[in-house]
């Protein structure tokens, strides 16, 4: 059966750690990193990359256009 796999790339310097992507992700892929960017924001990171389905919910709600989404059928 075809399976959909996704991946996101976060622009960590642009991210303000608002957490809205973490909340929006239906697959609980994202968390805020313990490390901070140069502005002191804990940026968003894939904690469970294998669970990403590439739905782009995180990217749609991101107020700072930090998230690029990729999706592939495997």
């Amino acid at each position: 059966m075809a399976k959909i796999k996704g991946a996101v790339v976060v622009n960590t310097e642009r991210c303000k750690g608002c957490n809205l992507c973490v909340v929006a992700c239906p697959a609980e892929v994202l968390i805020l990193n313990k490390e901070a960017n140069s502005k002191g924001y804990n940026f968003s990171t894939m904690a469970n990359p294998d669970d990403c389905v590439g739905c782009a919910a995180c990217a749609y709600v991101c107020p700072d256009a930090c998230i690029t989404v990729y999706k592939v059928r495997v």
Binding site: K5, G6, A7, I67, Y70
Partner: peptide, 18 residues
């Protein structure tokens, strides 16, 4: 397929508008 394989312009579904 690894995350790095998926991250490929051919698989792009969402990016910041130019």
């Amino acid at each position: 397929m690894t995350t790095n394989d998926i991250i490929n312009p051919a698989n792009l579904v969402y990016a910041k508008a130019p």
